[in-house]
């Protein structure tokens, strides 16, 4: 695969992750368990949308076909989206939302730290900003996992249910394909497998304090990189993309 094409795909994956998870944050607007948490979730959402914009813009630049950040976000169907399945999982209750975010941030905080060393200047710059943001995402979500896991009987049950729902989607974070390998060899990408130990340690520590049990030997779901998504993504994109699709050519 041509170098540019690999870089395009790589950037797009990161952008899609941020865009999809950012959208899930938007769905909480006005519905959080307290007003203060509404603001915190909005902050998480704003960070993610910001990351998505930077990464989509860069991907469009690299592709060189004149596609803008919005073209990439709003005019691609689900089978072209390359996010990990974890981020498209529905918000469920607050336990699911915080656990999903914790799993994501426990990976992407160290990921962006590593990406700061990328030979690609733009990705390194995006990473430098994201590192500061993801530290907050990780702390905020981890604290909620602990608060809810070691809270009331009801919250403990809901949090353990959330673990059972989301655990099968965590394996995909460490997958790697030809694009990852190629860019890794060029000093641009981060090796996903290299983050497994750190992620497992973070999760083990928080699970211990949250009194949670991780399933053993669970089958891991997969498919994001090749555009094979869950049923949820289609609905999200239908809502997200409605205006752009219904009024093509309009400027917003």
């Amino acid at each position: 695969m041509a170098a540019d094409s690999a870089l395009f795909s790589y950037s797009l994956r990161l952008a899609d992750n941020a865009n999809v998870l950012g959208h899930r944050m938007c769905e909480w607007s006005g519905k959080a368990p307290m007003l203060e948490e509404d603001m915190a979730l909005s902050n998480l959402g704003l960070d993610l949308i910001g990351q998505a914009r930077s990464l989509y813009s860069y991907a469009g630049e690299v592709e060189g076909a004149g596609r803008s950040e919005d073209d990439l976000a709003f005019m691609r169907d689900a089978n072209s989206y390359s996010n990990v399945l974890l981020v498209e999982m529905p918000n469920g209750d607050f336990a699911v939302t915080m656990l999903r975010h914790f799993f994501f941030a426990a990976y992407y905080a160290p990921f962006f730290e590593e990406l700061c060393k990328s030979k690609d200047e733009t990705l390194a710059a995006v990473a430098a900003k994201a590192v500061r943001e993801m530290a907050y995402h990780l702390r905020h979500s981890a604290e909620w996992v602990i608060r809810l896991g070691d809270g009331s009987d009801e919250s403990a049950k809901r949090m353990q249910d959330a673990v059972n729902i989301l655990w099968p989607y965590t394996g995909e974070l460490f997958e790697s394909d030809a694009i990852d390998q190629q860019l890794l060899a060029e000093g641009i990408a981060v090796d996903p497998e290299s983050l497994r130990e750190k992620w497992q340690a973070t999760v083990a520590d928080v699970f211990k304090r949250a009194l949670l049990t991780a399933p053993e030997d669970a089958w891991m779901q997969s498919g994001g990189r090749t555009g094979e998504h869950t049923e949820h993504l289609g609905f999200m994109l239908a809502e997200m993309q409605f205006l752009q699709r219904s009024y093509p050519g309009a400027q917003w």
Binding site: M34, E36, M39, A40, N43, H140, E143
Partner: peptide, 20 residues
């Protein structure tokens, strides 16, 4: 002022509400 169950949440909430 703000409401929070403990000091950690209070500090985080303060960051979100007063230093956006």
């Amino acid at each position: 002022s703000l409401h929070a169950v403990d000091a950690d949440m209070a500090l985080q909430n303060a960051r979100d509400v007063y230093t956006r």
